[in-house]
């Protein structure tokens, strides 16, 4: 069964350090998140509401883009925050940022849904070829794959899209096929008809390039 990270948390290795931050909408600090999370662990629903208000947009947008079904995305969004509610007391701030944990959790759930046999079968007809994420920029209105009325590009998104544009196409393609299409390295190699080793290299180089370009954002 393909359950890559279903139960594999963000590494719980004590050697992992905090420090890097991802700027997200609302620019909330990790310390504020952690304070809210501490309240959530005490079963404070108001604190969860605050976290939900802050992150629902980015989490929903991510899972919607992956599963491309609004009902499914809504369910996944709820699953993610239910897990936050139930596991808040297990989160160790020494082991990573809250938003990294949250978005990794959301990504894993969406990818696992995408990989489930039943979902694959159901979604096959509605799913076109792999997208080039860069197409999303500047022309969101013509994006018929997500029939949603509003697609607002904020500063952070614009910067990420700009960074992706700067990454060589082959590397960008590997990143998107993995992150948004849920393909394994072998599947990407097969789809692009290139050796597996080439895909591994493209992924590594693409991620390093992304980090280099977004140095001030991360």
């Amino acid at each position: 069964m393909d359950e890559r990270a279903t139960n594999t948390p963000i590494p719980t290795n004590g050697a992992i350090r905090t420090g890097s931050r991802v700027r997200i909408p609302n620019e909330a600090s990790n310390s504020e998140d952690l304070a809210l999370l501490a309240q959530v662990s005490q079963k404070d629903q108001k604190a969860l509401e605050t976290l939900y208000a802050k992150y629902q947009r980015v989490v929903y947008s991510l899972v919607l883009r992956i599963v491309r079904d609004e009902d499914e995305a809504s369910e996944l969004l709820q699953d993610v925050f239910v897990q936050v509610w139930q596991k808040a007391d297990l989160f160790d701030q020494d082991r990573g940022n809250f938003n990294t944990w949250l978005l990794t959790l959301a990504h894993n759930k969406a990818i696992n849904t995408l990989r489930s046999k039943a979902y694959k079968k159901r979604a096959l007809e509605n799913r076109g070829d792999a997208d080039d994420i860069v197409k999303w920029a500047g022309d969101a209105a013509t994006d018929t794959r997500t029939p949603l009325s509003e697609q607002i590009a904020d500063d952070a998104r614009t910067q990420v899209l700009e960074a992706l544009r700067q990454i060589p196409e082959a590397q960008r393609q590997a990143l998107i096929l993995a992150y948004y299409e849920g393909l394994s390295q072998s599947e990407i190699a097969e789809r692009l008809d290139v050796p597996l080793g080439t895909i591994k290299t493209r992924m590594r180089q693409g991620m390093l390039k992304l980090k280099e370009i977004l140095g001030d954002l991360i």
């Binding site: 947008s61 697609q151 590009a153």
Partner: peptide, 11 residues
């Protein structure tokens, strides 16, 4: 960060 590349839409 890649998560932010998705078209942003409220739940």
């Amino acid at each position: 960060v890649l998560a932010e590349a998705a078209p942003q839409v409220d739940a």
